[in-house]
Amino acid sequence: MVTQPSRIEHHPDIVALRARYEQASARPAAQATEGLSLLAGLYLAISPWVIGFNASSTLTVSNLVTGIALAVLAVGFGSVYERTYGMGWVAAAIGVWTIISPWVVAGAPTTTKVILSNIITGAVAVLLGLATTAMGRVRRV
């Protein structure tokens, strides 16, 4: 009698972990965090045109690229949470970059509305990234 080797996907520990992450991603708080992360990323990407600083190509490109990256991460959090929750720190890092970018990016406009937009959007991204990471680590008792 020939037995087939068991596949790793069917290991009891893997199955239990997937069920835990599926349960975590089904909670309303997780869904709200994912949705807000997507909205923050989309806003960050379009903020140069909303705020009116699209003439400055350096900060415009920075916000566009990091906004798209944040939105893609949020889609990942929503669709394959068990594989992406550990990347919540990347969303937080994008938020930190968004906060400091008006002073770091060469030629960036330093008007109050540009700075406030980036600080608020960056702070939201940091908080949502940390929340996403924390949700994957919370254990139910």
Rank of each mutant, 00 (worst) to 15 (best):
V2F: 06
Q4N: 12
P5L: 10
S6Y: 11
R7V: 11
R7C: 02
I8R: 10
E9P: 01
H11D: 15
H11A: 12
P12F: 10
D13K: 12
I14P: 02
V15W: 05
V15N: 06
A16Q: 15
A16W: 08
L17T: 13
R20H: 09
R20I: 01
Y21C: 03
Q23Y: 08
A26V: 03
R27F: 03
P28E: 13
A29L: 06
A30R: 04
Q31W: 06
T33S: 12
T33K: 00
E34V: 10
G35I: 14
G35S: 13
S37K: 04
I46E: 06
S47E: 14
S47I: 04
P48D: 05
P48C: 04
W49I: 06
V50H: 14
G52L: 02
G52N: 09
F53W: 15
F53V: 11
A55Q: 10
S57Q: 09
L59R: 05
T60S: 07
T60H: 01
S62H: 13
T66N: 10
G67E: 06
G67V: 01
A69T: 05
A69D: 06
A69W: 09
L70S: 08
L70N: 06
L70C: 10
L70A: 15
A71V: 01
A71W: 05
V72H: 01
L73C: 07
L73K: 00
A74E: 03
A74L: 02
A74I: 00
G78T: 12
G78Y: 09
S79H: 04
G86C: 10
G86N: 11
M87W: 13
M87F: 11
M87R: 07
G88I: 01
G88N: 07
A91V: 11
A91E: 02
A91R: 00
A92T: 13
A93C: 07
G95Q: 05
T98K: 02
I99A: 08
S101F: 03
W103K: 08
W103R: 15
V105N: 04
A106Q: 08
G107W: 11
P109R: 04
P109M: 10
T112M: 04
V114L: 02
I115L: 10
I115S: 11
L116F: 13
S117G: 11
S117H: 06
S117T: 15
I119K: 11
I119S: 01
I120D: 08
T121M: 09
G122N: 10
A123K: 03
V126C: 00
V126H: 00
L128I: 04
G129V: 09
G129D: 08
G129Y: 08
L130E: 13
A131Y: 02
A134H: 05
A134F: 04
M135Y: 03
R139Y: 09
R140T: 14
V141P: 15
